[in-house]
Structures are given as C-alpha cells and as structure tokens.
Design a protein around this nucleic acid. Structure first.
Length: 701
DNA sequence: GAGCACTGC
C-alpha cells in the first residue's frame, strides 16, 4: 500500500517515518484550527537593508521616493535632536528609511565637519547594498563621497564622508585607533540584534566618546534599532534621548494555535494544507523551521500530499544558509500564475533576506541555537523557543508589500511566557577572540562596559586559553605578549592564528594557511538528504587515512587546481561558495604573513609536521580512547574529562582499533557529544608541542 | 552509524 512513498528514503526506518506522517496528515487536513487572537495587529518588523530592494523596484524619481519616506518628513525634528545631543537612540520600524536617510540628512547639513560618518551593519550584503543605494540617491559614484568597507572589499577613499561598514570592520579599525578619530559621527544600526560585535562596539564607542569629548574632538553616537529593550539601552547610555519613527508596513493578522502542538513538523504540514485549500493561489507562504534536515523532510511530505490534495499547484522552495546559492535563487523566481509558492526557511528569512509577495507566515516558534559550555569547551546545538521579538519579526515578513496574516503553531499563553528578547550572543559564545581584540585595543576586560556581561567563569576560561596559547602574560594580568600582538593581526580564531605563527618552525606554512583558511570558512561538503550516498562516494576520493584535516587539505588543493570550479564542486558535492571564501581568506592570511616577514615553507607530504603544527594551536582539543578496547566504537574522553564519540562523518570513524589519541576541531553536542573534524595523533606529540599544558593535563587526568 | 541555526573579521 505504501509503494508510492518508498522513493523518499532507502533506509527502512526512514521510510516508515514518512509513511506515518503522511497518513496522519491526510486524515486531518481540515481538522486543525486556529483562533483569531488579534485583528489588525501591526507587526513590529525590523528596519534595514530591505528598504533598498523595495526601493529599487520603484520606477519613480529617486528623490520623490526619498521625500515620501516617513523619516524625511520629520527630518528637521530629528536633526534638532541630533544637534542637541551627543548620544541618541532612534527606534524606527520597517520602511521608515532611517538607515539610508539619516546619514544623508546629516551630511547635507555638514554635521560631520572634517570627520566621516560611519554606519555599521551586522551583515556584509547590507553594508554594500545600502552604500550603493545611498550613492545613487546622492547622485555620486560609489567610493567617492559614499562608500563601504567589508572584509576583502574596501570601496572608500580619503574623501568618503558616509561609510557603510560591517561592525566587525569597525572593530578591526578600533585595534589601530581605539578613539576612532576618523569619524565624527558613528551610527550603530540593527542594535536589537545584539551580535557580539555590536555589543563590544557599544562599549568602545562609549569610552571613545568620553575621552574625545574631554579633548574637544567630539564624537556623536546614534544607536538605531527596530524594537528593542529601550530602557536597557537608555540606562547604558546615561538616559540619552530616544526618538521613535513610524514605519511603513502593512497590518498582519496574528492567529495562535488553540491548543499546544506536540509534533510541530506534523502541525506545520496540517496548517499548510488547511490554508492551501482556503486561500487564493497568489498568496505565497513562508514557513519558519529549524534546519536543513527538517526542511527536507517537510518538503517531501508536502510534495507527496499535494498530489492528492485539492487546491492550486504548489512549488516548494527550501531556504537555508548551507543551500548552494543557485538553489537559493529559486525562492525569488516567480511562479506561473495560479501556482502557490511555499518557502520553507530557517531563521535566515527572519532578517538576512527578504522574500517578496509573502502573504502568509507559518511560524513554528522554534530556532536552533548554539551555546557554549566553558568547562568542557563543548558547544551545544539545540532547538529552543525563540523570543517574542523574533516572533514579531517573523510575523512582520507577511506584511512587507500588502496586509497579511501569520499563523503561530503555539498558543497565546506560550507566546506570552517567552522571553521578550533573544539572549545576546556574548552571553553564550566563546570569548577568546573577543577578549584578545579588546586587550589589543588597550581595554581592561574586567572593567570594560558591556550592556550584558558574560559570566565571570566564561571570561576566566577564555583568558586561561589565551594564556595557554601564549597570547597574554597571565589570566590575571592580561597584557599582550609579543606573540599575542602578532596574533591580533590575523582576523581569525586565536587558536588558528597560533597555528599559523607556529608553522614556520614546523616547515609547513603553505599547508597551514590552506588548512586554516578552510577551517575558518563554513562546511565545504554539501550533503542533500536524497543524494547522501552519491555525496559520500564523491568524498571518498579526497579522504586521507590520517584524518579529516588532511582530507580537507586535499579538497582545497584540488579545488585550487580545478579549471571549472563551479562545475567541479557540483560534481563532487562540494560547496563552491565556502571554498571560494576559503581562497579569499587564504589570500588575506598570506598577505599578513608576508607583512610579518614569515617564510612560506612547504612540508610536501610530510603531514606529521602539519599535524604537529595544528596541535600547537589546538592542543586543548585532544581526546584519548577510554576504557581500553571494550567500547570499540570510538569512545573518547577529552582533556576536561568530557565523554565524546567520533562523528560518523569523520574519515576516522569505524577504524578498528580506533586511534588512541586524536586532535579535534570542535566538540559539538547534538543528540550526543561528537568530535568533529578529527585527526589521529601520536600521544607524545602533545609533550613536544605544548609541554606545560601536557604536564598539567596529566596531573588532572 | 548521525546529521550544522545564523552572522562576521
């Protein structure tokens, strides 16, 4: 009876999983219902770069469009506030135009004086597109009066007065000049996202402002945000003034689920088909899910049910960051008249990208979140309810071009019980890189003003790591060493900069650069659910018995040699974007090495040297087999005593006997604790490469 | 023998 479902997966249990779901859903397409909780609830969207794409579609004269923006209409009041105050918070909803207009208005009045205006963005694409848009509006070339600065790309010149840049770039500038004297006005946009970089910039800018105001070289600071915890920000900036701007979004009607949903993947498919048969075909759906596998499963379910469901034809589009760009593009491609588009997305669709003509949002209210344990160094990925702010942000995606509706697969009570805002990233991520950067700008980590401080244990753990890497004198006296100073030159994880700086003595800088570049990029292997076997087979030709690091190096080397890179990647199930990014990073790292007069040596195929070099930066990431051979399945214990297994995707997985000692790149807890990207090492290498650490390690074990 | 959310320098 179930032969029609058999094509989904080749493994038996997988097929059964699909069968059950599909059957259950078919029976209840019209069974699930929602309660209309609020009518005409204006969703709180975010501000940002979306203004740009929306504006580009308008054929009217650029200046007319500008002048119709809410922010333009109240510009004189805003100017007055900015003139009066050194610090100001500007809350603006989606479509208010604040990010494109405020810098122009300031520049028109020459408020920047001899300095420049910096506008920070959390994302590269946003910084670039905003700058291009504003250059058009100001009728000037990009890179003259208006420019942008992002990693690998600098479109500014000495005469640039308005600079859009990623917050990470402004942070790098702060290492060279902590007072940021180049700028007379700094606008920190998208403050509500609370990325680590923005959080650190809040403090750097606050301190710079204090010091510069004493010296008569004033710095104006404007914090821009969509919804946010205004009181927190206002307290932090000494009760500065707050201006609210109206947005221009359409009303979104919110519906909550009447009862608690036990199985959200099932509820999602129910909701989709319930709405599918009752709404016009040109009402496209945007569905928020948590990850690739889930999206692929739901997509398969929808396609199967659609065959027998009434209603218009359906086109399902997956959207997640790991999807190759060519496949992502399908989301923006128009569908034939009378076809419904259903986009299944992760939270990438929450702020990073905008999909036009979405009338209906279906929200699971969940997000996959990464957190860090500062005792074991393990990172954990788990599915958690998202904040109220994120829920509003998601709902707002239905009201971009016309009124819409949002269906929440959780109850109103559940919604109200959620935290108002997401936990700031700085509370839950490893801090070594951030602390090294702070120390490099001359700040004292213990007194640096942060809106939300990470736990003292978390700071201490990261300082200890920096001490072990030889970057600072001691955890209680966090002064940069000569090595530490060199490490700050590299825009990568301190462990990796240590690897590069150790490479000359192991005679393998050439290989170390490639390996660090790939490890600093994202996963290069693309594994679609339905083509897993082909992907695994393609990977075989790169696999090294020494482990995953040499495997990665093989991939990178062959990528560099391949003449038709895109096609080659597709054939080999590799991610072209991430490999190209690794190439860019390698160029950048090589240039820094050359500035530091490092000799580019190669170890050829003497990979022991490379692995020892890798160990000199990642020596805290060793694990040893435990309990002899009885477990057999590759059970390991890390230096901190955490139990973990080799990840099944590792090339060392399944080796009998398992290597007694391994070096891992990452310890990630999903369903279990796994060691990711692993190489076999000789146990005595640790004593050679990091003798002090090895001794302490032994004492504790 | 299981699966990596999203950014950034």
């Amino acid at each position: 009876m179930d032969s029609k479902y058999a094509s989904y997966g080749k493994e038996k249990d997988q097929r059964n999983k699909f069968d059950i779901k599909a059957k259950k859903i078919k029976l209840s397409v019209d069974g699930n219902s929602f309660k209309n909780v609020k009518e005409n609830n204006q969703a709180n969207g975010s501000c940002n770069n979306n203004t740009v794409s929306a504006l580009n579609e308008v054929s009217e004269d650029v200046q007319d469009v500008r002048k119709s923006l809410p922010v333009y209409i109240v510009r004189n009041r805003i100017l007055e506030e900015i003139r009066k105050n050194n610090t100001m918070i500007l809350i603006g909803e989606t479509g208010s135009g604040k990010t494109t207009q405020i810098p122009q208005i300031l520049h028109e009045q020459r408020l920047e004086g001899n300095g420049a205006i910096a506008v920070t963005q959390p994302r590269r694409v946003a910084a670039i597109t905003l700058a291009l848009r504003v250059a058009t509006e100001m009728n000037t070339e990009i890179g003259s009066y208006v420019g942008y600065s992002v990693r690998f790309e600098d479109a500014t010149s000495p005469k640039t007065k308005v600079i859009y840049l990623t917050d990470g770039m402004l942070l790098r500038e702060a290492i060279i000049d902590p007072l940021l004297k180049k700028y007379s006005i700094i606008i920190l946009d998208e403050a509500h996202e609370r990325t680590v970089n923005t959080d650190v910039l809040f403090g750097i800018v606050k301190l710079a402002q204090k010091e510069r105001n004493c010296k008569g070289n004033k710095l104006k600071v404007i914090i821009m945000s969509a919804t946010m915890d205004v009181d927190t920000f206002r307290n932090y900036y000494d009760n500065c003034s707050v201006v609210y701007l109206e947005g221009r979004t359409y009303p979104v009607t919110i519906y909550h689920s009447k009862t608690k949903q036990d199985d959200y993947q099932y509820s999602v498919v129910c909701a989709i088909f319930q709405l599918h048969v009752t709404t016009p075909a040109n009402h496209h759906f945007l569905v928020f899910l948590t990850g690739q596998e889930e999206i692929e499963t739901v997509m398969a379910n929808i396609k199967q049910i659609a065959k027998e469901s009434p209603g218009p034809p359906i086109r399902v589009c997956p959207l997640y960051a790991g999807l190759p760009p060519a496949k992502q593009l399908l989301v923006w491609k128009s569908v034939p008249e009378g076809t419904r588009k259903i986009v299944l997305a992760t939270n990438i669709a929450e702020a990073s990208v905008t999909i036009p003509h979405i009338k209906c949002v279906i929200d699971t209210g969940l997000v996959k979140e990464r957190s860090w344990c500062n005792v074991t160094g393990a990172e954990r990925l788990r599915i958690v309810p998202c904040s109220q702010a994120a829920c509003w942000q998601r709902a707002g995606r239905a009201g971009r071009t016309a009124p819409g509706s949002a269906y929440r697969l959780y109850t109103n009570g559940d919604f109200k019980a959620r935290p108002q805002h997401n936990t700031p990233e700085i509370i839950r991520c490893p801090l070594a890189a951030t602390l090294l950067m702070l120390i490099a700008t001359g700040m004292e980590p213990s007194t640096f003003p942060l809106i939300d401080a990470p736990s003292p244990d978390s700071v201490q753990a990261s300082l200890i790591l920096l001490k072990e890497l030889g970057a600072i004198e001691s955890e209680n006296n966090p002064k940069l060493t000569v090595l530490g100073k060199k490490m700050t030159a590299f825009p990568i994880d301190p462990k990796y900069s240590k690897v590069i700086l150790s490479a000359p003595e192991h005679g393998c800088l050439d290989e170390a650069l490639s390996l660090v570049a790939v490890m600093s990029s994202e996963n290069v292997f693309h594994t679609p659910l339905h083509k897993r076997e082909e992907a695994v087979k393609a990977k075989q030709k790169f696999v090294s018995t020494l482990g995953d690091h040499i495997t990665l190096l093989n991939v990178f080397k062959m990528f560099c040699k391949a003449p038709l890179k895109k096609q080659w990647c597709k054939e080999n199930y590799l991610n072209h974007k991430n490999l190209s990014y690794a190439c860019d990073i390698r160029h950048q790292l090589l240039a820094i090495c050359q500035k530091l007069n490092m000799e580019v040596s190669s170890c050829g195929t003497a990979f022991d040297q490379l692995l020892k070099c890798l160990l000199s930066g990642l020596f805290t990431n060793c694990a040893w087999t435990r309990g002899g051979m009885t477990t057999g399945a590759g059970k390991y214990a890390t230096a901190s005593g955490a139990a973990a297994a080799l990840h099944p995707a590792s090339s060392l997985h399944g080796l009998r006997p398992p290597p007694p000692a391994v070096l891992y790149t990452e310890l990630l807890h999903t369903r279990r604790a796994y060691l990711l990207t692993v190489s076999a090492i000789e146990p005595h290498w640790l004593h050679q490469v990091a003798p002090e650490y090895a001794r302490r390690c032994r004492a504790n074990r």
